[in-house]
């Protein structure tokens, strides 16, 4: 019996194999985990699966999308931050949704943005305000004017406290002094059905989520919160064009645990750049309505840090 036990335990150890610290030079020499903090089928998940496929082609090793959900995303982000910085665990960081997890003093979270090695930004998906096709408000100016006239009568559906859609609303509230009832949903599907069913007046969403509905005229996008017009919504003016300087977007970038060796950062950056620039990836992203915007590491970090104070003021922390 004893022999039997020993044999099996040693067999099991053998199968796992002894751990050899991977040299940075031959990265990747085994499958890489790509953590997504949201569930399968969401925007980030589909983006990740798209990227993972490209990375596998470029590096020759599988990139496995791992959905670690919950905690408004922080369960997954904490898993990235606390992983071994060996280049075999990377993941998607979602700005600005990440802010509230570590800026909110009530949550007492140990991790913050310093817990990550930021690699690069991948996708920028600007926030938009959408109304029903039969809405009496044809432009953003009309809408804001009407909201101002009757404060507390209009309602907007967003995607959770402290998320990009909510922050965008809070910023508009700061700029224009409008007052609306905010409805939080944990899925955009529900928000969209609430808009179409007339249960709310405005849908705060992102370009990729509504550009098809805008094209098919089921919903009308009134404004994009970006510097320039979105290529997916060329007929929709920006908030800036109307004089409201609100720029918000849901961004998805790649991060790794803090302390990732420079050589791996280098290889990873190169691999990512090759995938993102490939015509195949560009074409798929276009179909999904994803604005690709590569922001290199240094600039990415500055952008993230510079927003922190702004968020704190908006959320009142």
């Amino acid at each position: 019996m004893k022999k039997f036990v020993l044999a099996f335990v040693s067999l099991a150890f053998l199968t796992v194999g002894p751990y050899v610290p991977a040299a940075a030079a031959d990265w990747p020499s085994k499958p890489v985990k790509l953590i997504v903090a949201y569930g399968p089928g969401g925007g980030t998940d589909i983006t990740a699966r798209l990227l993972a496929q490209g990375l596998e082609k470029v590096t020759g090793k599988p990139f496995v999308v791992v959905n670690i959900t919950g905690g408004a995303g922080w369960t997954g982000w904490a898993a990235i931050a606390n992983a071994n910085p060996d280049g075999y665990t990377i993941g998607y960081l979602n700005i600005p949704n990440m802010y509230m997890g570590y800026l909110d003093p009530r949550l007492k979270r140990a991790e913050n943005i310093e817990s990550f090695t930021l690699i690069m930004n991948h996708v920028v998906d600007p926030c938009v305000w959408t109304v029903r096709a039969d809405s009496p408000y044809k432009t953003l100016k009309d809408l804001i004017g009407a909201i101002k006239k009757s404060p507390g009568k209009f309602s907007i559906a967003t995607h959770g406290n402290g998320g990009d859609d909510h922050l965008a609303y809070l910023d508009m509230k700061r700029i224009t002094g409008i007052e609306m009832n905010v409805i939080h949903n944990n899925s955009t599907a529900l928000s969209r059905s609430q808009l179409l069913g007339g249960h709310v007046d405005i849908l705060g969403a992102n370009v990729s989520e509504v550009f098809q509905n805008h094209q098919s005229r089921d919903m009308i996008v009134l404004g994009v919160m970006d510097e320039k017009r979105s290529p997916f919504l060329p007929d929709v003016p920006t908030f800036k064009e109307h004089g409201y300087d609100a720029q918000w977007a849901s961004t998805r970038g790649i991060g790794a645990p803090a302390g990732l060796p420079d050589a791996i950062v280098q290889s990873l950056t190169e691999a990512l750049a090759r995938v993102i620039e490939s015509p195949e990836h560009q074409a798929k992203a276009k179909q999904l309505g994803l604005g690709l915007k590569v922001i290199p590491e240094a600039e990415y970090k500055i952008t993230i840090k510079s927003y922190e104070q702004h968020i704190k003021t908006l959320m009142g922390w």
Binding site: V5, F8, V9, L11, A12, F13, T15, V16
Partner: peptide
């Protein structure tokens, strides 16, 4: 780990 842990537990 999974493999060794499972085998030990099963035993």
């Amino acid at each position: 780990g999974y493999l060794a842990g499972s085998v030990l537990t099963a035993l």
